[in-house]
Nucleic acid binder design. Sequence first.
RNA 1: GGAGGAGUAGCGAAGCUGGUUAUCGCACCGGCCUGUCAAGCCGGGGAUCGCGGGUUCGAACCCCGUCUCUUCCGCCA
Length: 591
Amino acid sequence: MTNNKRTVTCGQLDESWAGKKVTLNGWVHRNRDHGGIHFLNLRDHFGMTQVVIDEDADESLKNDAESLKIEYCIAIEGTVRQRPDSMVNNDMKTGSIEVKANSITILNSCETLPFMIDEESEANENLRLKYRYLDLRSQGMQKRIKLRADLAFAVREYFDGQDFLEIETPTLIKSTPEGARDFLVPSRLHEGKFFALPQSPQLYKQILMVSGFDKYFQIARCYRDEDARGDRQLEFTQIDVEMSFVSADDVYAMTEGMYAHIFKKLMNIELTPTFEKITYHDALNYYGSDKPDLRFELKFQDFAPYVEKGDFSVFKSVLSSEKGAVKAMVVPGAAAAYSRKKITELEDEAKKFGAKGLAWMKVTADGLDGGISKFYSETASVITEGLGAKEGDLILLMGADWKTSCNSLGAVRSKLGKDLGLIDESEFKFCWIVDFPLFDYNDEEQCWEPAHHMFSMPQDRFIDSMEENPGDVLGDLYDLVLNGYELASGSIRVHNPELQQRIFNIVGFPKELAEERFGFLLEAFKYGAPPHGGIASGLDRLAMIMAGKQSIREVIPFPKNNVGLSPMDECPANVDEEQIRDLHLQIIKSE
RNA sequence: GGAGGAGUAGCGAAGCUGGUUAUCGCACCGGCCUGUCAAGCCGGGGAUCGCGGGUUCGAACCCCGUCUCUUCCGCCA
């Protein structure tokens, strides 16, 4: 390699190098043989450089050039020269120069590729994952993996400047109940016992606060054994943070500072210092989602005041039930574009979320038309005026219990946002979702359960009378939402053993089980635990959004696929009988 | 666990209501070509049409079953 070792990379040459001798190492990205003259695009991590084998090159060099195929790994020794004005390629960073080759050395050849290595490979994802090393060579993947590394660096830089310590926590931990399904790790030394992989470092970071570390962060790998989606998979990385002696406002400020630093540094975007806050109730009520995409409006309105003025019995019966609600969404100018068939598509979307149907009306010059308009002909002007609808608008209506009504119309809202192109992809709209209820009533089990988890603090004003009506209790809980994705989630924690016990009582969590599962945390709280709270941001999701992608697999070097497999190394996989025996396990085959 | 969509050369796709030598682009092989940058032109090889069964004179196409992938719901404190 001595003589072939690169002196420059493929991304750094410009006119100032003209006349200099250089050696380049990289991969043959494209190969254009014109007979007399021959061009190569040589690619490495840093960029692309055009190499020329001139017509006056000697025969052996021409033969060497001819033998090259795409993705051969080669070394080129040659001279940099400025391109004539008419040959400058402005789409290329190094487009003002080219390297006239003196010698070509093949460092390694390459078989016929399973797919072309391009910015955006069209190969199906499982094939890309099987040959991930090739897929990762593409400039797009190289850029995204670098973005991810830069992101992690910016995070550390920010916290370092704020007196935070990065502290590692174990990945072989105790399985705790609630939440997602744990990944279990059988113990060899302790027959029949198991570790779990952490769903998050939650309990450890709280213990670290009890230990007096004051400000903790960690870029932590987390594991949840649940079905994957575009924005989640079995293992993922979170930016985990916990602080002592803080209120929610302190956590907001710290988090906003972190995102401001990241976006300024990596994208040169100035984020507005204080992110909008929306209550959980309003998010659902107006946008139909606890993670609303605020890049477009389409806010819901209450249609209940108009129901009595019309004859549509479905809505009347919805409102007669205790939790019934009728929501309206005015879609400006969409009447013409939305035929009955296209509205049916919207309805199908709503039905996925439990809606029975989707009612609609179109606003015309004379009033309302189509759908259920005949039931409201008398009050058309009152409705259009009240809803602020104009001629050519489409009014979508959803009647169901409040939650179903909001959620299903929210799904329609999301679809419309995409279909109508209402989303400006260059925008980053953050918002805090606050005032989450602490408890949810489980109708099937007839009991209260924690809406998030059992360690979140109720807001002050509810503490004294928490037991009277648990459903009204709001917690010191918050989510950070960006462009319709839940990006971070956190809370101020309970640090007082008595309060913690009252919460266990409300959700019917047995004292003995609490002792068994996280007795160590409850014990720790008895020894002068400081008030504390924190937040965890999804690093994969953040990288995905910054990269403008729809899937976190585009920013994870070696992701699992949608069914939890890794096509490259083919795991999970069988293991030897002996390994199973050592772990005191037995495989029970399912039917 | 449920609903929709898809499986055709190494890759991406076409093939509508049954009859083709199964088509096209990229890649691959051979040839031509002095300025391309997704180079171009001429030629070539490569497909048991996911698998199994059925209907039919005849199936990539229709029917049944099955497997795999995929999007969504459930799940994800």
